[in-house]
Amino acid sequence: MPVLCSSCAEKRAVLKRPKTSHSLCKACFFWAFEEEVHQTILAAKLFKPGETVGIAASGGKDSTVLAHVMKLLNERYDYGLELMLLSVDEGITGYRDDSLETVKRNQQQYELPLKIVSYEELYGWTMDAIVKQVGLKNNCTFCGVFRRQALDRGAIMLKVDKICTGHNADDVAETVLMNILRGDIARLRRCTAISTASEGEGVVPRCKPLKYAYEKEIVLYAYFKKLDYFSTECIYSPNAYRGYARTFLKDLESIRPSVIMDIIHSGENLSVREGVKMPVQGTCSRCGYISSQALCKACVLLEGLNRGLPKLGIGKHHRLHDKILSQQPLTEKEEKKLKSVEF
């Protein structure tokens, strides 16, 4: 016996929503999914009419669905936003070539302007070249730190007011778990925020319109909408603790599907004791980017790469920042410590 859609009670249901376990027909699912993103955007007051919004586009499912839904809602509800796609080319052979092709197709399908900024033009290094020097074990440090700045720099080039990213509910819940596992109270407090205000020069405000969308529903949406996306994960595997957190979250979800929202709820209601030290946010004295240290992470990593001391940005070597800033030579012992990279 076919199951009827629990929303319209007319059409046959084609899927069971992972989020609520209701059975829905295609049209009702699309409507619910889009409407929820719309409600999130309204409730959190993410945009103002007339703003130029850059959609961080990687070619993956999250950003492809984000671009699609943003374009659709902007028209349906007359947000009055100027949308554009913003992509970063890390220079990873195979992975990026293919995913950038997807982004380029999206550009045509959605008729949105596209800007691609490459690591090579921003930093003088491609990811492939970085991996050659630092090895596979540590590359994601570079990948993440460089991408964050690359988006900002690209956004500034394009005079974008805001960046929206494809982070979904699973990503946020996973980050909550990860920050607990590594005891990072400052990030734990920040990571459930749906948007970040402008934190100073060189940083563009960001938001996550898909914050409450389940990853599985994003896949369902893309599948039934037949959206064109690139499905391979970044070939450079994520950081160790994130891997643990991800597996743990998937196991939790199999026990109680609402756990993703439950963890986000927990994160949103955490309260940090007064007097707990939070790193003071300053700016990088070299590039002006937001940083709690004298040098931002990207500049330290770059310095390490350029000097052939790849471990510089990987461990905790804040002591050395002043030396680097003032261009003092490092001691032999320091050099030796920073040079060796285990694979």
Binding site: S6, S7, A9, R17, K19, A32, Q39, A43, I264, E268
Partner: peptide, 20 residues
């Protein structure tokens, strides 16, 4: 506004026929 709790309520409302 804009909380996981609220978002869940919205999802439930949107997924079912309110008349039923």
């Amino acid at each position: 506004n804009a909380s996981a709790f609220q978002a869940t309520l919205i999802s439930e409302q949107l997924s079912q026929n309110t008349f039923l």
